[in-house]
Amino acid sequence: MEPSRRDRDVGVGLRANGSDSPPAAPLLELVGVRAAYGGIEVLHGVDLAVPQGAVVALLGANGAGKSTTVKVAAGLLPPTAGRVHVAGHDVTGASSHDLARIGVCTIPEGHGVFPNLTVRENLWMATQVSGRLDVLEDAAYARFPLLGPRRHQLAGSLSGGEQQMLALSRALVTDPAVLVLDELSMGLAPIVVQQLYEIVAQVAQEGISILVVEQFARAVLGIADRAAIMVNGVVAHAGTPAELQSELSSAYLGSDNE
């Protein structure tokens, strides 16, 4: 852990708790990441950091490169340039299952569940990482009581919100250190989104660092410690949610000086 990297401001890499103690290395950090689909470069040098115990919101309009950033962070897409660090260690090029095993857990956009498996079977998938199914089930149903009565129901037949709860519960029972959430609100009613983000806030209070990628800023800014706005494949603005209020409209709608 080189001091120079720890001390560098990488967009949103400041400590969330504002203490005077020396900042620890961010748990997840992207440094100058470039990524491409075939010959088309989508990320043009993304700098992003998720400090310990912080909730970082990554915002931006459709096509800004948010989900691609998640793919790079989750090991699903190797960067063409730049580095990915976990807890100060270079893990660039690590596979998604390696990152998941050490504790960087990603919930992809569009309900990350196995639709043709039951709720119980979906949770059973997590036993590959941690523990016995009955223990994991107890933990999951304690946090999400709605899932208990539906344990033998196919995940694909659950409502959108319940599927996201299942995806969250499956992620949480693996004891993640960093949680990456991609478009949690996709296709869900506002009231369900609000409930989900209340759960995310509870999870954050337990000390899990969270990177939330979200198109609808209002939903996530209430729980975020830091936020970054992506525009055309780069982090254009970064700061606290209050600091970014004025930048949001220009990022989404464009402005005169852009």
Partner: peptide, 22 residues
């Protein structure tokens, strides 16, 4: 949670970046 972070640091340090996909 600090114990979890310590474990993450340890495991990230020991992570051998595999090129098996390639």
């Amino acid at each position: 949670m600090s114990e979890r972070i310590a474990r993450l640091e340890r495991e990230a340090a020991n992570l051998k970046v595999s090129t098996s996909a390639k």
